[in-house]
């Protein structure tokens, strides 16, 4: 088992690097897209709400693999060149954005409606009230769940292995296939995932306890 780690250290670490890079890009991008769709979902105009809701419901109900493969296979045939890492990261972003949209929407709706009304009656526009009054309060509710989304992203980014995205799982599969030592290789790969996800998950649990007390 140690042999697998030492002989392939560079490859594994580069795989872990791509895994983290993809997860971080997808987290930031899906936070932006998710917030936009959350705002659509709570709009006053019905047709805007329908668009937001449709996006979230549609994406939440289809597998990440299907979204990712669609970008890897269809987009390059008809639209533009797109490598596996890009296709995988876009797939992760779109998939995660639907979940973040739901969290952000719940966060905004948890802010009492009186806050918005009060701000509007004091002369703030809808956008101003949103940005200055509602968002800062909603963030408190949203931020803890972002940590969990990041853990999910690190695990889900193993989807890159399907599209030659050079992530940890992809490198693990190749090492397993060349060394014929399947069991040990996946054990090492598993430990590397846990090194990232376990501390995060304990930190999140600690934060959640702390945050709710504050």
């Amino acid at each position: 088992m140690i042999n697998i780690l030492t002989n392939n250290f560079g490859t594994l670490i580069s795989g872990l690097g791509y895994t983290l890079l993809s997860s971080i890009i997808a987290l930031v991008a899906s936070l932006i897209i998710g917030t936009v769709f959350a705002l659509l979902e709570i709009s006053h105009k019905k047709w805007v709400r329908v668009i937001g809701k449709a996006y979230v419901e549609f994406i939440r109900n289809i597998p990440l693999l299907v979204i990712t493969m669609a970008f890897y296979v269809i987009v390059p045939q008809f639209v533009m060149q797109m490598d596996g890492f890009t296709a995988g990261t876009i797939g992760l972003t779109i998939y995660t954005s639907a979940f973040i949209a739901e969290t952000v929407r719940a966060g905004i709706q948890a802010v009492p409606a009186g806050q918005m009304e009060g701000a509007r009656s004091n002369g703030l526009s809808y956008t101003q009230a949103m940005v200055h009054i509602v968002f800062p309060q909603a963030i408190k509710i949203v931020v803890p769940s972002l940590g969990n989304q990041f853990i999910n992203l690190v695990k889900n980014s193993s989807i890159l292995a399907f599209v030659a995205g050079f992530d940890l799982m992809y490198q693990g599969k190749i090492i397993a296939a060349t060394t014929f030592n399947t069991f040990d290789t996946y054990l090492v790969v598993g430990v590397l995932y846990l090194v990232v996800t376990m501390p995060m998950s304990y930190a999140m649990r600690y934060l959640e306890k702390h945050w709710s007390r504050a």
Partner: peptide, 18 residues
């Protein structure tokens, strides 16, 4: 070198200009 999981996926990737 880009390695895919099987020949069907690999041929599809070639058709998708990967």
């Amino acid at each position: 070198v880009l390695q895919l999981s099987d020949y069907s996926q690999a041929f599809t990737a070639l058709k998708s200009h990967q």
